[in-house]
């Protein structure tokens, strides 16, 4: 009985994740995007912790703690300071206007649920129904990376995609083996660090973070 109760909270959090993904698609300001990314991390950490508690998978507690430390506290804090230092918090229009992006997003969600259906039927986990949502989050983050032309939103899109993948791993299999998860977390951390350096390099060279400057290399 308690399992179903927990499950409902997990489902609620999964819905929240999807909602945040859509909110990210429509967010024009970078600081707003960073805040949404932190909330997405929080929802992910909480749902992982609840799954860990209700199924007795102890290694998931570590994953939840890692998500909390990295994606809710460290990375948003770092991005927030980056945005402040670089002073790039202006509202920017994405390449495709927002209502159209949302419509494409809805199509992606339907596609994701179809893709997830055969896999979740085979899954033995109690959380299998959320797999569709996880894939939808990945695709929406992908869409965000395509439609944004600024460096920091693209990076947040990339990390949000990683959130979606992490959620997929948790809902389909109760998470990957701990060593792998630690390795993935380390890679993501290094990636953010490298990107921090990189963003300063771009800024130094172009005086802007607009990736439209980075469209010169093409085959003639």
């Amino acid at each position: 009985m308690t399992l179903t109760y927990h499950l409902q909270i997990v489902n609620l959090l999964a819905a929240l994740l999807l909602l945040i993904s859509f909110a990210m698609l429509s967010q024009r300001r970078v600081v707003g995007l960073v805040a949404l990314f932190a909330w997405q991390g929080a929802a992910l950490a909480l749902s992982t912790a609840i799954i860990a508690w209700s199924t007795g998978q102890h290694h998931l507690y570590y994953s939840a703690a890692l998500t909390l430390a990295l994606k809710v506290i460290a990375m948003p804090w770092y991005f927030y300071h980056l945005v402040k230092r670089l002073n790039v918090n202006r509202a920017v229009e994405p390449m495709i206007n927002i209502p159209t992006t949302m419509l494409i997003g809805i199509v992606l969600v339907i596609f994701a649920f179809n893709l997830a259906l055969p896999i979740s039927e085979m899954s033995g986990t109690v959380t299998r129904s959320t797999l569709g949502i996880a894939i939808a989050c990945v695709l929406l983050a992908f869409l965000m990376m395509i439609t944004r032309t600024k460096a920091i939103p693209q990076v947040i899109g990339f990390l949000s995609m990683e959130n979606g993948l992490f959620f997929a791993a948790t809902s389909a299999t109760y998470g990957m083996p701990l060593v792998v998860e630690l390795g993935v977390a380390l890679d993501v951390l290094v990636a953010v660090f490298v990107l921090g350096i990189f963003i300063f390099q771009i800024r130094e060279t172009f005086d802007s973070l607009d990736l439209k400057n980075l469209e010169k290399l093409k085959d003639k």
Partner: peptide
């Protein structure tokens, strides 16, 4: 650190 190399790396 040339513009082209930054673009390539990104």
């Amino acid at each position: 650190r040339t513009p082209a190399s930054l673009e390539a790396a990104w």
